[in-house]
Amino acid sequence: MAVLETDVAGVRLRNPFLLASGIWGESGESLAGAWRAGAGGVITKSIGSAPRAGYPNPTIELLDGGAMLNAMGLPNPGIDEYPAEIEIARRAGATVIGSVFGGTAEEFATLAGRIADTGVVAVELNLSCPHARGFGAEVGSTPEGVETILRAVVGAVRIPAIAKITPNAADPAALAAAAERGGAAAVSAINTVRALAIEPRLRRPVLAHGLGGLSGPAIKPIGLACVWQIFERVRIPIVGVGGIETADDAVDYLLAGARAVQIGTAVAGRGIGLFGRLPADLDRRLEALGFPSVRAAVGAAHPPADGAPRPAL
C-alpha cells in the first residue's frame, strides 16, 4: 500500500485529490458531497466582496475530445452570505480551502481575512480567472501584481495562502516565483487556458462573454509544462491542475513536481464518484511504479540533484 496522505502548505490531506474551485462549490451541501465521495479536500467557489450573478448563458460549451470551454463570470453569493455554506461543509468534516478573488491587493487581503474567519484550513487566491474584467488574470498576470497581492494577504491572515497561477502569461513560473517571494505557502497551477469557440451559423461566439477558459484533457500537457517549470523555480509546494481524469494523469503531475492535484472538469463526464475511485487507482499505480508514497513521487521526473542515474524498469 502506497502512502496517499500528502500535505500542501502545512495542510494535511488524506489523499492528493482536491475538488477544484468552481466545481460543486456554490453550496455547502455540494462541498460536503464531494468530501463524502472521497476528495482529499474541497476548494470553494471563488468568493468576492459582493454577490455576482455571473455572465448570462451560454456559459459553457463542450468541445470534441472532452475539452470544455467556460466563462461563468465568477458567480458567487458574496462573502457576507457564503460563510453559512462553508459551515455546512465543515460540519460534514470536510477539509475546506477557501477561494477568493479581488480587484486589488487590499480587497484580496480583506476577503482572505473574512474567509479565514470561517475556519477554512487555507485560502487559495484566484489570480488566474481568464475571463472576468478587473479580476483574476487581469490582476495576476505580472510578477509585481502577484507579489503585492500575496504580501497583503500574508500580512492579513494566519492561515496559509495558496496562489492559483494563470497559464496565460509569457512566463507562468515567474508568477509562481513572485508568489513565493510574497509569502505564498503553495501555488496551484494552472487555471483554464484562454480560448474561444465560434458559432458560424449565428456569426457570433458561442459563449455569451465571448472569450472563455479551456479545461479538460486538452490542457493537461500545458498544465504539466507549467508545473514542471515552476518546480524548477520555487521551493514551496505545487498543486497541479488541468485535465486530470485518471490516476495516471495524477502520477504525471506528481512526477512533474505537484504534491497534490485538483479535479474539476472530469466530474462532468465521470461523476463525483470519481473521487472514490481515484485513491485506490493511484495506490495501485504508485506501487507498480515502485513509489512507496505520493511524496516519494513528487518531482521524480526531474533530473536528480546529485547527478545519480534514474532507476529504470
Partner: peptide, 20 residues
Amino acid sequence: MKCALGLCDACALGPYHVCT
C-alpha cells in the same frame, strides 16, 4: 441552471443537482 452538466452547482437542491 447554467451548465446542465453537474459541474457549476447553480441548480443545487439539498444534496442533489437538478440537472443530473
